[in-house]
Amino acid sequence: MESRSGTQGRRERAKEDKRRRIMDAARTLFAEHGVGGVTTQRIADRADVAIGTLYLYAATKAELLILVQNQKFADAIETGLTAANAAAGRGSDTIDVVLALVEPVVACIREQPENGRTYLHELVFGDPLEPHRRDGLTLSLRLEEGITGVLSADPAINAADAGTRARVVTSIIHVTTTATVHLHTALPGILDQIRQQVTAVLPRTAHAA
């Protein structure tokens, strides 16, 4: 007779396998068709699970998108933090360090513009207590704290103002990456727009080493 712990272990493995299949299916379909071109039923079919099973992991398509994008967003932030540390170690000026941090994040958001715009919209305007949104907001805070750290290291920036300026920078990123006017702008153009705006809100002495 199989032990209770063995049965629970098998169930957990089966649960994790279904979650992985759902995530893989959603990630692929969202990337290929955009969030507007995919239904939850199509994702369930691709993952080979019942629609009711899919809803155990995400109650709506928006939540499923957030779940998928959170993983990508987290990886992009970690890549950006590593790049920022490397840029700071080379003696780069504050603007370049900030751009090194945010470039992977912007690239993540713009990889599929519709998905990125929907993701950020859902984080800002959705229920902050929903677990997947809460995780996404935590990631946004990690990005903001990373930018705050970069700005705090600049002697031209008052440490008490660094957090406020970081929030301005994240707002610039949000608006520039999601604005309809930039919908068809390539990544280099988006980054150039962000650089210009960030440069305008930081002290002039912070622009050069």
Rank of each mutant, 00 (worst) to 15 (best):
G80Q: 04
T82D: 12
N85I: 07
A86K: 15
A87E: 08
A88Q: 14
A88S: 13
G89D: 09
G89P: 04
G89K: 06
R90G: 04
G91D: 06
G91T: 03
S92H: 10
S92A: 15
S92M: 08
D93A: 03
D93I: 00
D93Q: 00
I95P: 01
I95C: 07
D96Y: 01
L99F: 03
A100W: 00
L101Q: 07
L101N: 07
V102N: 01
A107I: 02
A107W: 01
C108P: 00
C108A: 10
R110A: 08
R110L: 03
E111Y: 13
E111F: 10
Q112L: 09
E114V: 11
G116N: 06
R117D: 10
T118P: 01
T118A: 14
Y119L: 02
Y119T: 01
L120R: 02
L120Q: 06
H121M: 10
H121G: 10
E122R: 10
L123Q: 00
F125V: 09
F125R: 12
F125N: 12
F125L: 12
D127Y: 04
D127A: 04
P128Y: 05
P128D: 03
P128C: 03
L129D: 14
E130S: 10
P131W: 03
P131C: 05
H132K: 13
R133D: 00
R134N: 09
D135A: 11
D135Q: 10
D135M: 06
L137E: 01
L137S: 00
L137T: 01
T138S: 11
L139C: 00
L139R: 06
L139S: 02
L139T: 01
S140Y: 08
L141W: 08
R142E: 11
E144H: 14
E144P: 02
G146N: 05
G146A: 07
G146M: 03
I147H: 05
T148E: 15
G149K: 02
V150P: 05
V150S: 08
V150T: 09
V150E: 08
L151R: 10
S152Y: 09
S152D: 14
S152N: 13
S152H: 13
S152T: 15
D154H: 10
D154M: 09
P155H: 11
P155V: 11
A156S: 15
A156M: 12
I157P: 13
I157E: 13
I157R: 12
N158T: 14
A159Y: 14
A160C: 08
A160D: 15
A162R: 10
G163H: 11
T164K: 07
R165Y: 09
A166H: 02
R167W: 03
V168R: 07
V168I: 11
V169C: 06
V169K: 04
S171E: 07
S171C: 04
V175T: 14
V175Q: 14
T176P: 04
T176I: 14
T178V: 07
T178D: 03
T178W: 02
T180W: 12
T180K: 12
V181R: 13
V181K: 12
H182W: 13
L183R: 15
L183D: 15
L183P: 00
H184E: 14
T185P: 05
T185R: 15
T185D: 15
L187S: 08
L187A: 08
L187F: 09
P188S: 11
G189Q: 09
I194C: 14
R195P: 07
Q196W: 10
Q196D: 15
V198Y: 08
V198P: 06
T199W: 02
T199R: 13
A200T: 07
A200V: 02
A200P: 06
A200N: 07
A200C: 05
V201Y: 05
